[in-house]
Design a protein around this nucleic acid. Structure first.
Length: 539
RNA sequence: GCGGCAAUAGUCUAGCGGUAGGACAGGGGCUUCCCAAGCCUCUAACUCGGGUUCGAAUCCCGGUUGCCGCACCA
């Protein structure tokens, strides 16, 4: 068994992860998070919110999992996620229909019918099949679609960010490798809308001297880069992106990923979506699976907003005032309504409008002929006035650019599990410990009575357990088996602290606190236990 | 999707034509109570469907699922 097998075995056995639909035979690409897994995942998500919602001041929204067909036509998923495929009738190999000639490149055999393969799950909204919907293949689109509302919510103050944590769905052809490629998975994405003319970051100064392992697209290998240098030398496209690469780094370190198994790889030119200005993947080195993408951090430019603008016809632009209004002088035509009115009656207004459209700069002292409803109308020189006017242009309407960190939480969950997994020998016995960071551990503390003077100790330990739970801690109580066995049970599910009620407790109201990682012990007064735990757990 | 390999208690595994065995985990009991001790006891499995055979966990065919390779992975 390699580490992957060991981790998955433990995960199954102790209630972290179960293959879905087991009693019906199971289906690849779906996993259930069991009681401990769901808790661990929630803790990871909450920590993510601490970084992005609390730390960065972004806001979380929640949009439907089902999207309309139009959304994915705009986003490009409908065409890029639907491949025409053909099967060779002799060797049964599948090919992209648009990538091959009329004979099989492998064996030269005949092709069968062309069929469509949808990477998006299709469904129908309402009765009948008139309105097609798709399960979203990413959480991002919901945030783009809400752009006009968001812009108003943030009172047009740039930059602003919005996040979404939720399920996304892709009907993968062959899901593999446990949590790495799922058909239903959890994403945490942030969309940060920024001024395309200013991709500096207000807090870049705080991070510019930090050093990360970068693997730029032209490089042969990953190496250490100071962020300021990477931006200056054009390795990372801009400060804003660099800041978010670093934020991703901090988060991944924050869930316990070890630094030497973490790198940022820039997408190759042909791998990068055509609209992206720059894109980096945070990759984690896993034991069996190698370097696996966990997070994508991209500068998506104005692609998404433009695309939705085109399909929806909604205005997804924003008015960007210039620092100084631009003053332009030009010659303008001013219609003389006192003459036009009586002369043209009901058409006068339209004639005046048409006049104002004419570029007056080239006009001499002459009559103007304009066309109105197919008829030529001649306006004599006294019907208008040409004046020099000053005009102020205060800004322009543009589409904002988008910086998008996109996290695959299931993959990160697995990386956390693998990173926490340790086995060691203690007095000839194998000890398996999940060294989750205390703030992520699914169970925060387990209360154990020594079982010598059973009833008395039990009474106290149950009361302590009860009390800790009432005060908001995730606490277990275990009274079966020897004390050593019970410690090991907690080690295996990563409970950072065990609290043991022993004989000394009866004398001085203290308990033993036992540390998961070192197995060291400490005495703590019962009335100080809760505060002690809160501080040690870092919550 | 294709190809190769595989599938036995909660977990890991033995058995490879003739009564399905072990280890760990779990429940109960005795004993012990600060690191998976010991003893007794209980619970618990042949992935599914066909076929061959007197008899199939075992051989054959198919489905399902998993692992590996190919393909796929905006």
């Amino acid at each position: 068994m390699d580490i992957y097998d060991e981790v998955m075995e433990l995960a199954k056995r102790r209630g972290f992860l179960w293959p879905s639909f087991e009693i019906y035979g199971g289906t690849a690409g779906f996993y259930d998070y069991g009681p401990l897994g769901a808790r661990l995942k929630r803790n990871i998500e909450d920590l993510w919110r601490k970084f992005y919602v609390v730390g960065e001041g972004f806001y979380e929204i929640e949009t439907p999992v089902i999207g309309l067909e139009e959304i994915f036509r705009a986003s490009g998923h409908l065409s890029s996620f639907t491949d025409p495929i053909v099967e060779c009738e002799s060797c049964k190999e599948f090919f992209r229909a648009d990538h091959v000639e009329d004979r099989c490149p492998v064996c030269g055999g005949e092709f069968g019918e062309v069929s469509e393969f949808h990477l998006m799950f299709r469904c129908f909204i309402g009765p009948g099949s008139k309105r097609a919907g798709y399960l979203r293949p990413e959480t991002a689109q919901g945030m783009f679609i809400d752009f006009p509302r968001l812009l108003r919510f943030f009172r047009e103050k740039l930059p602003f960010g919005v996040v979404q944590v939720g399920k996304a769905f892709r009907n993968e052809i062959s899901p593999r490798q446990g949590l790495i490629r799922l058909r239903e998975f959890t994403q945490a994405e942030a969309e940060i809308f920024i001024d395309p003319h200013d991709k500096s970051h207000p807090r870049f100064d705080e991070v510019k001297d930090e050093v990360l392992i970068l693997f730029p697209q032209d490089a042969d290998e990953a190496s250490r880069w100071k962020l300021a240098d990477a931006v200056e030398q054009g390795i990372i496209a801009n400060e804003f992106l660099a800041y978010h690469i670093y934020l991703t780094y901090r988060f991944l370190i924050g869930v316990g990923i070890s630094e030497d198994r973490l790198r940022f790889r820039q997408h190759e030119a042909d791998e990068m979506a055509h609209y992206a200005a720059d894109c980096w993947d945070a990759e984690i080195l896993l034991d069996r699976l190698g370097w696996i993408e966990m997070v994508g951090i991209a500068d998506r430019t104005d692609y998404d907003l433009k695309a939705h603008e085109e399909v929806s016809k909604a205005d997804l632009g924003v008015f960007m005032p210039y620092r100084e209004p631009k003053v332009i002088e030009r010659m303008a035509i001013k219609p003389n309504m006192q003459l036009l009115g009586p002369r043209f009656k009901g058409s006068a207004k339209r004639i005046a409008d048409a006049l104002s459209q004419i570029d007056a700069g080239s006009l001499g002292d002459q009559e103007i002929t304009i066309e109105l409803d197919g008829e030529a109308v001649t306006l004599t020189r006294d019907m208008f006035e040409i004046t020099r006017v000053k005009e102020e242009i205060r800004g322009e309407k543009i589409n904002l650019h988008v910086i998008e960190p996109s996290y695959g939480l299931d993959r990160i969950f697995y990386a956390v599990m693998e990173g926490a997994f340790f086995e060691e020998e203690v007095e000839g016995e194998r000890r398996v410990v999940m060294r989750f960071l205390p703030n992520l551990a699914p169970i925060q503390v387990c209360v154990l009575p020594l079982l010598g003077a059973r009833d008395e100790l039990l009474k106290i330990s149950r009361k302590i357990h009860d009390d800790l739970r009432k005060r908001g801690l995730i606490a277990e109580h275990d009274e079966s088996g020897t004390i050593g066995r019970r410690y090991r049970r907690q080690d295996e599910i990563g409970t950072p602290f065990c609290v043991t009620v022993d004989y000394e407790t009866l004398e001085d109201n203290t308990v033993t606190v036992r540390f998961r990682d070192t197995m060291e012990q400490l005495r703590v007064r019962i009335d100080e236990l809760h505060a002690w735990l809160i501080s040690e757990l870092g919550i």
